[in-house]
Simulated scan of single mutants.
Amino acid sequence: MAAVGTGHGAPTRRAVLTAGLAAAAMTAALTTGCTRHGPPDDGRAPQEGTPTPSAPHTATGPVLAVKIDNVAAARPQTGLDAADVVYAEQVEGGLSRLMAVYATELPEVIGPVRSARESDLELLRQFDRPTLAFSGAQKRLLPLIDKAPLRPESPEEASRAYYRGTGRPAPHNLYLRPAELLDRAPGRAALTTGFRYGPAPAGGTATAARTVRYPAARFSFTWSAARKRWLVSMDGTPARTTAGNRLAPATVVVQYVRVTKSAYHDVLGNNTPFTETVGTGKAEVLRDGRSYEATWSRPEASDGTTFTGPDGGPLDFADGQVWVVFAKA
């Protein structure tokens, strides 16, 4: 099984707004906690129900982006299999956190929901005023979130949309009811990621499994010919939802990016990494049991990310859920 520790390239610049946000963050004093919290436990356990489908080619509003907890105490997660795109990033202490993006369907419940990071503001610029569901953020980051071109919806702004589930301790038990934030899923046209979908390209290397390692976390993807999907494992354990569904994207992208220090730290003093998603760099695209070398490009924060093969042509993804794992270049 191949493993990723270091990458092959790095992006070269950030968008103007992101640079402004980062500059503001660098002048902020360090802070050690989140200032927004969910409502009291209402005694309801998380559930997964029938997703709400949407027309595939007509955007009726913004995407929903949800920050998902990903430490062992937060697993299994709820509603993660319904996301169109799942982004995995490194956070404090070498751990990982997920950003799930929903456009074509909405599950009844999503979670556990956790706090936002500075990197999220740059990542979400590719969408048209997305709705960001998150549990809070460090005090000095909140003004930047409020100024970003998105709709922030924490428990403070939308208390009816959140509840505390039973069976887990806080902070790993905060769940979101998406129907309280969006009337319906906006549709596939709202996914302005820059991704292309189509038949598998020629070439590639037969690949049975791929592992991406962070200092204190790892993601493994094992090809299932029977399901025509990549089965996800996290920290060595098969990843499932609370409904028992195995997480199994059709396409996995290992995107090599520049990871730098931000001005923020957690309560233990660990620095919060900043993951730069604007620029260009190397990537690997896993689909149909094969791995393809690629180059990614996102010139401006408001652009989606395009992937090209060694011949310079677009590299299409398989139809279905996409996981993008940011690996340090």
Rank of each mutant, 00 (worst) to 15 (best):
P62T: 09
P62I: 01
P62H: 00
V63E: 12
V63C: 11
L64I: 01
L64Q: 02
L64E: 04
A65C: 14
A65M: 11
A65K: 10
A65E: 07
A65N: 05
A65T: 11
V66E: 03
V66K: 11
V66W: 06
K67V: 14
K67L: 14
K67M: 15
K67C: 08
I68L: 15
I68E: 00
D69H: 10
D69I: 00
D69L: 02
D69F: 01
N70Q: 11
N70V: 04
N70A: 12
V71T: 14
V71W: 10
V71H: 14
V71S: 11
V71E: 14
V71A: 08
V71G: 04
A72F: 08
A72M: 04
A72N: 10
A72D: 08
A72E: 15
A72I: 13
A73N: 13
A73W: 05
A74D: 04
A74K: 05
A74H: 03
A74Q: 09
A74F: 12
R75L: 09
R75G: 02
P76K: 00
P76C: 06
P76R: 02
P76I: 05
Q77N: 14
T78D: 06
T78W: 00
G79L: 09
L80Q: 12
L80I: 15
L80T: 14
L80P: 11
L80F: 14
L80R: 11
L80H: 10
D81A: 15
D81H: 15
D81T: 15
D81F: 04
D81Q: 15
D81S: 15
D81W: 04
A82H: 12
A82I: 07
A82P: 07
A82M: 09
A82L: 10
A83N: 07
A83M: 07
A83R: 03
A83I: 06
D84P: 03
D84G: 02
D84N: 13
D84L: 06
V85F: 01
V85Y: 06
V86P: 09
V86W: 12
V86N: 03
V86R: 01
V86T: 10
Y87A: 08
Y87E: 07
Y87G: 00
A88H: 13
A88C: 10
A88W: 13
A88R: 13
E89L: 05
E89G: 06
E89F: 00
E89N: 05
Q90V: 13
V91M: 07
V91Q: 08
V91S: 01
V91G: 02
V91D: 07
E92Y: 02
E92K: 09
E92H: 04
E92I: 01
E92C: 03
G93K: 05
G93V: 09
G93E: 07
G93Q: 05
G93L: 02
G93S: 06
G94P: 01
G94Q: 01
G94A: 02
G94T: 06
G94M: 00
L95E: 08
L95H: 08
L95M: 13
L95W: 03
L95G: 07
L95N: 13
S96Y: 01
S96C: 04
